[in-house]
Design a protein around this nucleic acid. Structure first.
Lengths: 191, 191, 191, 191
DNA sequence: TATGAATGAGCATTCATTCAT
DNA sequence: CATGAATGAATGCTCATTCAT
C-alpha cells in the first residue's frame, strides 16, 4: 500500500503555483495541474477538496508563512531602521526567489475578491506598519501616515518584480526601495 | 440616432466596468452585464464583437485616455517637480473618482495576461519616467533607477485606493505620496 | 426571437420519461435525453434547473395529476363499490396507456428514496382508502385494515403491468383485480 | 481459516444489503460498504469481482434461498389452501424479519433492469402459481388468472412492508392478506 | 436595430477499480 | 491475504455566442 505522500502534495502545489501565477484562476485547468504534477486528476482531490481549496490553501499557506517570517523580523530588538531594512530585503528576496508564488499571492487579491485574501494583503502591509510606528515612537522616523507608507512597500516590491527593468538585480531593487523609505522616514536624521 | 447608439454603448460599458472591477474576467457573466445595462444579451454583440473585445476595449480606451491626459501634463513647460506633482495629483484624483475603472485597469494585467495590456501598464509607469528623466537631466532630481521609481507611482496609487486608510481624503493621499517621492528625489534640494 | 415553447418542455419530458422508465436515474444521461428530445443539452437547463429537478418534476406532476383524477372519482356520489371500480379501472387503464410513466412513478419510490416521493406513493394508496372507509361506514364493505387494502391496489396494478401475463388485456386485468377485491370486501353482500 | 473468510464475506454482504436496500445501486459507494463492513476497499474485490457482482450475488443468492424455501413448502402434501397459507406466512415473516433484504430484492427489478433479476421476480410469483393451479385442479380454488393472482402476493407483501400501517404486526398482515386470497380463491367453498 | 431562447464545447468533479506495499 | 492511495473515464452543468423573430 502506498503511503500518503507529502512529496505528492508538494508536487501538486508546485505545479499549481506555476499555473496559477501565469494565468487567472478560471483559465487554469485541473487537467494541466495534474499533468504537470505527474499525478492523476483524482489524486489532486485526495489532497485538496476542490480546485478552489487548492488555490486558497496555497495562497493562505504561503502568505501565512511569509507573514510569519516578516513578523519574526519585525520583533527584532535592533533599531527600527535596521529592522525595516531587513524586512524589505527579506520580502524582495523572497519575491525574486519565488516569482511564481509572489505573482500568485499578490494577484490573488484582485483575481478573486475573497475577503480573507484581501485581509491577508492588508496584513502584509500592516506588518511593516508595526515597525514604522515603533520608529516614530522612538523618534527615529517621521511620518503622518505610517499605515499608508507601510502599504507602499509591498506595492513597490510588486512593481519591481512585475514592471521593473529586466536586468535589475534583487539587491539593487532592495537598495533602491530602501533609499526611498529612508529619505522619507528619516528626513530629520539626514541633516 | 448617434446619440441613441452611444447611450447604449455607454450603458454597456458602465455596467461592464462595475462588474469587471469587482470580479475576475471569467466570473463576470454576459447575462449580468446585459441585465445591468438593461439591454438584451444580443445587443452587446452589436456594439462589441465578443466579451473579450468588450473588456479589452474598455481597458485600452480608458488607459489610452488616461495616458493621453498624463502625457499632455508631462509635456508641460514647468519644472520637473511641478509637472510630476500635477501628474500624481491627476492620477490619484482620477483613481479616486473612478475607483471601478482604476481597479479594472490595474488588475487587467493579472486578470488576463495579454501582452498588450501588460505593455499599457508599463506605459503608465513610463509616462512618469519621462518627467523623472527630465528632472535628472536638469539636475533637479537624483535617481539611479528612474524607470523603477516611475513604476512605483501607479503602484502606490493602487495601494492607496485599495488598502489605504478608509477615511483618507484624496488630497491627503496625493500629498503623502508626493512627500514620499520628494524626499528621495530632491535630496540635494532640500538641504 | 424564439418564444419559450411549451412544446419543447413537453418534448423534453416525453424523452425523459422514456429514459427514466427503462433505466435507473443514474444510468440515464442528460445527453441522451437532450438528443432524444432533439434539443441542445443547455435547453434542458432552461426548463429545468437540474437533472434531479427534471426527474422530480415529472414524477410529482404526473403523480399529482393522476391523484387529482382519482380524487375526483373518489368524490363520486355513487355507491362505494361503483366508485372503487371506476377508480381501479381508471388507474389500470392509465397504467396500461402510460406504461413508461407508470413504471417511472412506481419505481421512483425505490429508485430514489426521497421523502416527498414516498409520501406521494402513500397518497396514491390513501386515495383508495377514502372510498374503502366510506364503504365500511355505509355497511357495504367489511375490512379491518382498509388502509392496508388500499395500498394493495396500486401494488397489484404494478404487478399486472410488470409481471402479468403478456397478452393480458387491460380490461381483463381490471376485472381480475376487482374480483380479487370484491370477494373479500363484499363478503356479506354476495350471499 | 474458512471461518475467517466467511466472516468477512458475511460482513461485506451485511453492510452491502443495508446500503443497497436504502439507496439505489449507483448511489451506494464502495467506500461506504467497505467502511461499514470494516474492511479495506480492496478486500471487497477479493471476495467479489466487482460492485455489480456483489449486488447480483446478494440478490440472486437471497432470492434463490427464499425461492427454495417456498418451493419446499409448495411441495407439501397438505391441501392447497394450507400450503398457500404457509407460504404466505413464510414470505411475510421473512420480509418482516429481513426488511433490508426484502426491499433490496424487490427493488432490484427496477433498480437495475437485468433480465436475470426480472426473471427471478417472476419466479417468486410463479412459485405461488404452482399451488394456485393445484388448488384449481383439485377443485379447491377458483381463478381464471392464477398466474396473475400469484403475482399479487409478493406485490401485496411488498405493499405491507413498505406502506402498511406502521404498527401492523406481521401476523396481522398475514391474516389480512390470506383473508383476501381465501375470499377470492374459495368463493364456492364459503357458502 | 434589438431580443433572449437555443446551442454545445468545455471543464470540475466523482468513484469503481487497480496495485504497490 | 489485506490495504487504501492512486487513477482517469465518465458525466452534469455553465455560459459565450448565435440567430430566428
Amino acid at each position: 500500500m502506498q503511503k500518503r505522500d507529502d512529496k505528492k502534495r508538494e508536487a501538486i502545489i508546485a505545479a499549481a503555483v506555476k499555473q496559477f501565477s501565469s494565468r487567472p484562476f478560471h483559465e487554469v485547468l485541473l487537467d494541466e495541474i495534474a499533468a504537470a504534477a505527474k499525478v492523476g486528476k483524482g489524486t489532486v482531490y485526495i489532497y485538496f477538496s476542490s480546485k478552489e481549496d487548492l488555490y486558497d490553501t496555497i495562497v493562505l499557506e504561503t502568505f501565512d508563512q511569509l507573514l510569519a517570517e516578516l513578523r519574526r523580523l519585525a520583533d527584532g530588538k535592533a533599531n527600527a531602521w535596521s529592522v525595516l531594512s531587513e524586512m524589505v530585503r527579506h520580502l524582495m528576496r523572497w519575491a525574486y526567489r519565488n516569482p511564481h508564488f509572489y505573482r500568485m499571492i499578490m494577484q490573488s487579491v484582485s483575481d478573486r475578491v475573497k475577503p480573507s485574501l484581501v485581509r491577508k494583503r492588508k496584513d502584509l502591509g500592516d506588518v511593516f506598519g508595526i515597525v514604522l510606528r515603533r520608529g516614530i515612537e522612538e523618534g527615529d522616523f517621521e511620518d503622518s501616515q505610517p499605515l499608508l507608507t507601510a502599504q507602499y512597500i509591498p506595492a513597490c516590491v510588486r512593481a519591481s518584480v512585475l514592471y521593473g527593468p529586466v536586468k535589475l538585480e534583487v539587491d539593487e531593487a532592495v537598495e533602491h526601495l530602501l533609499s526611498f523609505l529612508e529619505s522619507r522616514l528619516r528626513k530629520g536624521q539626514q541633516l
